[in-house]
Simulated scan of single mutants.
Amino acid sequence: MSLRLSMVTLGVADVAAATAFYEALGLVRGAPSEAAVTFFDMDGVILALYGRAALADDAGVAAMGDGFRGLALAWNVTGAAAVDAAIARAVAAGGRLVKAPERAFWGGYSGYFADPDGHLWEVADNPGFPFDERGALRLPEA
């Protein structure tokens, strides 16, 4: 059995509001979605939105506060203009600009936004990580 990232579930304060935000970014709600949970197919990885308290209860842990969670999701694109456009789109949809796009120490260009629940997203153009023919990000070959 190989380890694969198949689903990311974000605990959110309001499923309907979070759903509207991600739909404004262009995601399409999947058929199994309902009031308590929304699913988006992100070309092989499912993004799920579920109530924060319900998710904590399901895992048997205490709900976390609103501070840094030690996690950032990444949205890789091609070119600085695409990074700028993606950040602008997220902010227009109700996200919060966390770090304006800029040249990065690792040679790319990136910035950060937070969704309405504070989940961090980095939008990056990383010339060292190529996309394959399906548009999936790949690690560079040694």
Rank of each mutant, 00 (worst) to 15 (best):
2 S>Y: 11
2 S>D: 12
4 R>S: 14
5 L>P: 11
6 S>V: 09
7 M>F: 06
7 M>E: 15
8 V>L: 13
9 T>S: 04
10 L>C: 11
11 G>L: 04
11 G>E: 03
13 A>G: 15
17 A>C: 02
17 A>F: 04
18 A>G: 07
18 A>Y: 02
18 A>F: 04
19 T>A: 13
20 A>G: 11
20 A>C: 06
21 F>H: 04
22 Y>W: 13
24 A>M: 01
24 A>C: 01
25 L>A: 01
26 G>V: 00
29 R>P: 05
29 R>D: 05
30 G>Y: 07
30 G>A: 15
31 A>Q: 14
31 A>D: 15
31 A>T: 13
32 P>T: 06
33 S>E: 09
33 S>M: 10
34 E>D: 15
34 E>M: 12
35 A>K: 11
36 A>Q: 14
36 A>P: 09
37 V>Y: 05
37 V>M: 10
37 V>W: 08
38 T>C: 06
40 F>A: 03
44 G>W: 02
45 V>T: 15
47 L>V: 05
47 L>W: 06
48 A>D: 06
48 A>T: 08
52 R>C: 06
53 A>C: 03
54 A>Y: 01
55 L>D: 03
55 L>Q: 02
56 A>P: 02
58 D>E: 14
61 V>T: 11
61 V>Q: 11
62 A>K: 12
64 M>N: 12
64 M>Y: 11
66 D>M: 08
66 D>L: 08
67 G>S: 14
67 G>N: 11
69 R>C: 05
71 L>N: 11
71 L>R: 08
73 L>R: 10
73 L>P: 07
75 W>D: 05
75 W>Q: 10
75 W>E: 05
76 N>I: 04
78 T>H: 12
79 G>N: 05
81 A>T: 11
81 A>V: 07
83 V>C: 01
84 D>K: 09
84 D>H: 08
86 A>P: 00
87 I>R: 01
87 I>P: 01
87 I>K: 01
87 I>T: 00
87 I>H: 00
89 R>H: 04
89 R>I: 00
90 A>S: 09
91 V>E: 12
93 A>K: 08
93 A>M: 10
94 G>T: 01
95 G>N: 02
96 R>T: 15
98 V>G: 00
98 V>P: 00
99 K>P: 02
99 K>D: 10
100 A>D: 10
100 A>K: 12
101 P>I: 03
102 E>W: 03
102 E>A: 15
102 E>D: 14
103 R>W: 03
104 A>S: 13
105 F>R: 08
106 W>L: 08
106 W>M: 07
106 W>E: 07
109 Y>H: 09
109 Y>L: 07
110 S>C: 14
110 S>K: 13
111 G>S: 11
111 G>F: 12
112 Y>G: 04
113 F>W: 15
114 A>G: 14
114 A>R: 11
115 D>G: 08
116 P>V: 12
117 D>H: 10
117 D>K: 08
117 D>Y: 05
118 G>S: 10
119 H>M: 06
119 H>I: 04
121 W>I: 10
122 E>Y: 06
122 E>L: 03
124 A>T: 15
125 D>F: 13
125 D>I: 05
128 G>Y: 12
129 F>E: 11
130 P>Q: 10
132 D>W: 01
134 R>M: 06
135 G>I: 00
136 A>S: 13
136 A>P: 00
137 L>S: 05
137 L>G: 03
138 R>S: 09
139 L>K: 12
139 L>A: 15
140 P>M: 09
